[in-house]
Design a protein around this nucleic acid. Structure first.
Lengths: 261, 261
DNA sequence: CGAGTTCTTGACTCGCCTCAATTTGAGTGG
DNA sequence: CCACTCAAATTGAGGCGAGTCAAGAACTCG
C-alpha cells in the first residue's frame, strides 16, 4: 500500500477456497460471481515486522484483509508522540474509511500477510453487493464498541488495571486467532508489542508498564518465559484485576466475587 | 423507549417536509415510498432533561433520530461509577447496534425531542434500502473516528488540555447545530453538563475540572456569564491549548504556530 | 563475544485525587 | 422581596500514584 521499495513482490491470490480467511473474513459474505470479482482484484502481500503498511494522511488507495500476523494502528500527535489506538489480527479489515485519506497509520507488529484490494473496484463491489457492505458495517460497529470500552480503561483505571486490561485483550484475541484448542481459561502467547508500545497503547510510560508487568508476575497472574512470551494461567483472575471492564464476562465476574486476593 | 410513566404522550409525526431533520439526518437519504415507510413508523417523543432514554443492557426495541436537545451516552462501571462516552446532538442517530441489547445508557442532558422507530420495521427498511444503511454506516465511521481521537485526549493530555478539548468539541458542535450565523471563530453556548458530568466525561474529578475551567477563564480563553453559560472569544486559541488534538484544523494549527502564549 | 536495543529497578518530583470548608445560585414559601 | 434550603461549584491543604531521570541488567543479533 505505501509501496516502499523493500516491500515483498506481489503475487496472484491463492485460490480463495484454500484461504484461511475464506469463512471468517469479509469474503465469507461472498460466493460465485461476487467472490470471483473480489478474488480477481485481490493481491497477496507480505509485510515484514515493523514496516508501515500505510501512514496517517496517505491517500487511501487500497483496502486489505489480514490473513496472518498483527497490525498496530497508530496516531501521531502534533508533538511527535505515538499513540497506539488498536491492534488488528487475522480476519480483520484495514481501511474502512469513506474519506480519501487515512486517519491513522498502520504498521506490522509481526510479519503480516495481507490480501489487498484497490479502492475503486472494491468500492464498486460494495455498492453492487449489500451483504458485503453489511459485513463491514457490523465490523465497524464492533470496533466502535471496543473503542468506547477502551475509553473507560484510559479514563478511569489505575496503571495496574490498565496493563491487566491490555494483556487480557491480547490473551483473548490470541486464543481466538490461534489454531490449536487450549485448556479452558488458559492462554499463552507472544506479545506483539514492546514495553514502550504497550505504554503508548495505555497512556503510560514504559517504566510504569514494566513495573506493573512485574507486579502481575509477582502476584502469579501471569508468567513470563521471556520478556515477550506470556502465559496467563487463569484468564478469569486476570479479568478480575482488569475489573470494571465492561467486557467482563460472567466467568470473570464470578471470580471477582470469590474470596481470594 | 424506556417507557417511564412520566414520558410525554406519543404524537403522529409532523409532516417530514417541515421537520428540522429532513435534510441532514438519516431521512435525508430517503424520498417517495421509502420516506413514507419511515414516516409511518416514526413517532415523535419529547424527553425532559435528566431522564433516561434507554439503559445499558435494555433490549433495543427502538431507534431514534434526535430532532433537538443534547443526549449523554453513559457507561456504568461494575463499581457503580459513571463514565460519559459521548454527546449526541440534533440530526444524530441513537441505537446503531446489531445486537439485541444496548451497550450503554442514553439520557437527556437537556430537554430532547426524538423521532423514534420500532426495531423490526426499521431493520426491514434498512435491508430493503441500501442508501439508508450507507448513511448509518458513514455515521458510525465518523463516531469511530471521534472515539479514537478521544482516546488520545484521555491517554495523553493534562487536565488543563482535556478540559479545553471538551469545551472545544462542545463549542464547535454548538456552532454547527445552532441556528443563527455567529461571528467567525466565536462561540457562545449553554453547557449541557454539570462540572461533575464534565469530570465523568474527562476521567477527572469535579474539583479538577472546576480548577481548570477557572484557569481557562483567568487566561482569557473563555468567559462565563454564569457557571453554565460559556463564551469562547477565539476558538482557535482554545484549540491551541487543547493542542495535539488530531481534529485540529488548519486554522487551529496556524494559531498554534503564532507567537502568543 | 561485543554492540545496541530493550527491559528493569531505584530515587525523586509533580500533577491530580481526596477530604473538607465555604461560596454561589436556583427554587420555594413566608 | 427576602429568608430558607439544597444542589452545584469553588477553593484550600495534604497525600499518593504515575512521571522523570538515571543507572544497570537482560536480551538480540551481528
Amino acid at each position: 500500500m505505501a509501496g516502499q521499495p523493500n516491500d515483498r513482490a506481489y503475487a496472484p491470490p491463492a485460490r480463495c477456497e484454500m484461504c484461511v480467511a475464506r469463512y471468517r473474513a469479509l469474503c465469507s459474505t461472498l460466493s460465485g460471481e461476487q467472490l470471483d470479482r473480489l478474488a480477481n482484484m485481490g493481491r497477496r502481500r507480505t509485510v515484514p515486522a515493523n514496516q508501515y503498511i500505510f501512514r496517517d494522511g496517505d491517500e487511501a488507495l487500497y483496502f486489505a484483509s489480514i490473513l496472518s500476523g498483527v497490525v498496530k494502528l497508530i496516531k501521531t500527535t502534533a508533538d511527535g508522540e505515538q499513540h497506539i489506538i488498536g491492534l488488528m489480527y487475522a480476519q480483520d479489515f484495514l481501511g474502512h474509511t469513506f474519506g480519501k485519506s487515512h486517519r491513522f497509520s498502520a504498521a506490522a507488529a509481526t510479519e503480516v500477510e495481507l490480501c489487498t484490494f484497490p479502492r475503486a473496484p472494491f468500492v464498486r463491489l460494495l455498492d453492487d453487493y449489500p451483504p458485503m457492505e453489511r459485513w463491514l458495517f457490523e465490523f465497524t460497529v464492533r470496533e466502535l464498541d471496543h473503542c468506547r470500552d477502551w475509553t473507560l480503561t484510559l479514563g478511569r483505571k489505575s496503571s495496574y488495571e490498565r496493563v491487566a486490561s491490555l494483556l487480557l485483550i491480547i490473551a483473548r484475541r490470541a486464543r481466538y486467532t490461534g489454531n490449536g484448542p487450549l485448556p479452558r481459561n488458559y492462554a499463552q502467547f507472544e506479545l506483539p508489542l514492546t514495553r514502550s508500545e504497550l505504554a503508548d497503547y495505555l497512556g503510560l510510560t514504559l517504566e510504569t508498564v514494566s513495573r506493573m508487568v512485574g507486579k502481575l508476575k509477582r502476584k502469579g497472574l501471569i508468567e513470563l518465559r521471556s520478556t515477550r512470551e506470556v502465559i496467563v494461567p487463569d484468564i478469569g483472575l486476570l479479568a478480575a484485576v482488569a475489573s470494571m471492564d465492561g467486557s467482563l464476562d460472567a466467568e470473570g465476574r464470578q471470580k471477582l466475587l470469590e474470596p481470594h486476593e
